[in-house]
């Protein structure tokens, strides 16, 4: 379990465009940060586990049934933004990180 104090500020909330991602460097770890059009926030690893390139933040955000998703921009495999599980390839997943918005509207991520 990650404890509260590990949250670190990343950027103002309004820097995130709806349904589009950005990459952030937190403690030397590359994070892909998304804000959906519903206002939900997700943080997953930026490294595409299939191509090994750090590009997940540049994927297209969408949904599959009720699952919020992101598709790798290189070869289009789709991932569940909530759990990081790849929905197209078995046994592939992205790490997920806790994310929240502070009282002064700053996005914060917890990375160990």
């Amino acid at each position: 379990m990650i404890i509260d104090v590990a949250f670190q500020p990343v950027c103002p909330l309004d820097r995130l465009e709806p349904d589009r991602g950005v990459a952030a460097l937190v403690n030397g770890v590359q994070i892909a940060l998304f804000r959906t059009s519903d206002g939900e926030l997700f943080a997953v690893g930026n490294r595409d586990p299939i191509s090994h390139a750090y590009v997940m933040s540049r994927g297209i955000v969408g949904s599959r049934a009720d699952v919020p998703t992101v598709a790798s921009p290189l070869h289009k495999q789709v991932y569940d933004l909530r759990t990081g599980t790849c929905l197209d390839v078995a046994d592939v997943s992205l790490p997920v990180y806790p994310v929240r918005v502070s009282e002064d509207s700053v996005v914060e991520v917890a990375v160990e």
Binding site: E17, P18, R20, A53, V55, I60, P73, L74
Partner: peptide, 21 residues
């Protein structure tokens, strides 16, 4: 506006993505 979120990464950065990002 919203159109930005629809674009593939290539159109988003007005350039073609390569294997190493």
């Amino acid at each position: 506006g919203e159109q930005a979120s629809l674009q593939d990464t290539n159109d988003h950065f007005l350039a073609n993505i390569q294997r190493n990002g």
